[in-house]
Write a protein that binds this DNA or RNA. Structure first.
Lengths: 154, 154
DNA sequence: TATTGTTATACTCTATAACTATA
DNA sequence: TATAGTTATAGAGTATAACAATA
């Protein structure tokens, strides 16, 4: 084993003065931890955070086109194809023709998809409880508000 | 143009009830916005947030090995090689042999690297000001604390 | 046996460009 | 001309596995 006092390699004593005052670094670490937990929770379902987001938007906004869902989530529409293909194949999402515009598909959850999303959402809420536990409801409301403001900085 | 009232494709009216109560979704959006701004600010320098993190850790903790820096940042040590190669080639970071352990290299900023990091850090602080502007100092202190707690959830 | 730096590799996420069919 | 869905592709980021040198 090396002598930690010489080369400063003891992890506990590493200085983060600069990074610890930048929102960007801490927010990345927090987000990575959250997503890793989320992935672990939904590993058996094979649903990623992004896929859960698509299901959630379609569940709450039936009839949106693929492009509209992509825009709502801030993604490129090309990224929707594989996600919708997968959920359509699983019988959870339906692509329905849009009258008056044969270029578009309107997205709807099937009955199975509605049930499936309900179970995923319940699981997501259980998962969220682990993170809710480290703050008060007031703090969480305030955190969500600040995160929204950070997302809106232009 | 399609009829928005029929297929619910007006972005302003999309419902996010579920996602808006999950920390994970909002934190991802906030982090993406922050990182996009960061990338734009440092585009001329060609420095990513992760690369800035490496420089910052080495600047504050001269003599750490590559593996120690990777552990401090929560990355795999294999990811360090390309980053250190690049900064070494640019004459900003030095790999020095570690006495008593010929497997390791201790990392140090060169004089040029020290100056360069100082300028990058000043730029990062200017960049941060855009995000500091949307909250009070008290709020920021509290935000950093909450983010740390989120990162520590196990 | 274990660890460091390294290489090769693969996987996810994401964005861009171009194509087609439609508008 | 412009847009929706699609496809191919490429880049960044990250992780794993294996190797040689060294501990």
């Amino acid at each position: 084993m090396e002598n930690n006092s010489d080369n400063n390699s003891d992890k506990q004593t590493v200085s983060f003065s600069a990074l610890d005052t930048l929102v960007g670094y801490k927010i990345r670490r927090a987000q990575l931890n959250y997503f890793n937990h989320f992935q672990a929770t939904f590993a058996e379902d094979g649903v990623s955070p992004g896929q859960f987001g698509v299901l959630s938007i379609v569940a709450e906004n039936p009839g949106l086109t693929q492009t509209a869902v992509a825009q709502a989530l801030g993604n490129d529409r090309s990224a929707m194809v594989a996600v919708v293909d997968r959920f359509e194949k699983d019988g959870l999402i339906e692509r329905r023709p849009v009258e008056n515009d044969r270029r578009s598909y309107a997205l709807y959850l099937t009955d199975a998809g509605t049930d499936y999303y309900a179970s995923l959402y319940a699981k997501a809420r259980e998962h969220e409880a682990r993170f809710d536990a480290i703050m008060t409801p007031e703090e969480k409301g305030w955190l969500l508000d600040i995160l929204q403001r950070l997302a809106d900085v232009s």
